[in-house]
C-alpha cells in the first residue's frame, strides 16, 4: 500500500512527467491556452495512458519477453498505442457520444504524445508489476493534468498582460514552465522524507 502511495506521490510531484521527465511538452504548449481545453486534454491523457500502459505491459510480459523479442519493444508499443487510440476513438464515438464530444478532438493528438509511449516504456524499465504499472500510469497522467491546469490558469491571466513582442506565445510559456519546474524541485525533499519513512 505504502509503495503505491510513494509511486503516486513521486509520479505526480517529484518526477512530474512534464516538468522533470520532459515528456509530453508539445501538447503542453499547444493545449494550455485555456482551462477548459486543459481539462479535456488532461482527462483524455489519463484515460489513454492508463489503458495503453496496461495493454503494453500485458504484451511485453506475455508475448515479447517469452519469445525473446524485447528488442522490438519500440515498434510494437507504438503500433499498439496507435491502434488502441484509434479503437478508443471509434468506441467512444459509438457508445459514449457525450464523452466523445468532450475528449474526441484530443485523442488524435495523443497518439504522437511522447508521454504515452514514454510512460509505457518506463513502466517496463522500472519493472513494476501489473497493478503498479497501472497506478504509475494513472499517477503520471494526473501529474500531467496538474501541470497543464497550472499552466492554463497562468496563461489565462497572462493574456491581459503587456509583454515584449518577441516573448509572446510559446517563448513565455516555456519560461513559465521553467519557473514551475523550479517550484516542483521543492518536492524532491519530500520524496526523500517519504522514502525514509517507508524504509523504517
Amino acid at each position: 500500500m505504502m509503495d503505491a502511495v510513494i509511486v503516486i506521490f513521486s509520479a505526480v510531484f517529484v518526477n512530474n512527467i512534464l516538468l522533470a521527465r520532459y515528456l509530453g511538452n508539445c501538447p503542453f504548449c499547444g493545449v494550455s491556452k485555456n482551462l477548459s481545453s486543459a481539462w479535456g486534454m488532461g482527462i483524455a491523457v489519463i484515460f489513454v495512458l492508463t489503458i495503453a500502459t496496461a495493454a503494453t505491459w500485458i504484451i511485453h510480459h506475455f508475448i515479447l519477453d517469452p519469445l525473446h523479442l524485447s528488442y522490438l519493444q519500440t515498434i510494437v508499443f507504438i503500433l499498439v498505442i496507435a491502434t488502441l487510440v484509434q479503437l478508443v476513438e471509434f468506441f467512444l464515438q459509438k457508445n459514449a457520444a457525450a464523452l466523445f464530444q468532450s475528449l474526441g478532438i484530443y485523442l488524435p493528438l495523443i497518439t504522437t504524445n511522447c508521454a504515452v509511449l514514454g510512460v509505457a516504456i518506463l513502466a517496463i524499465k522500472n519493472s513494476y508489476d501489473f497493478i503498479m504499472s497501472v497506478v504509475f500510469a494513472a499517477a503520471s497522467a494526473a501529474g500531467f493534468l496538474l501541470a497543464l491546469l497550472c499552466m492554463a490558469g497562468i496563461r489565462e491571466r497572462l493574456e491581459t498582460v503587456v509583454l515584449p513582442r518577441p516573448f509572446r506565445g510559446t517563448a513565455i510559456t516555456l519560461i513559465i514552465a521553467g519557473i514551475m519546474a523550479l517550484a516542483f524541485f521543492g518536492f524532491s525533499g519530500m520524496d526523500a522524507t517519504l522514502s525514509s519513512l517507508a524504509h523504517h
Binding site: A192, S196, H199
Partner: peptide
C-alpha cells in the same frame, strides 16, 4: 540500482 540518492 535506482535507490533514492542520499538514502538508499
Amino acid at each position: 540500482s535506482q535507490e533514492t540518492p542520499g538514502i538508499g
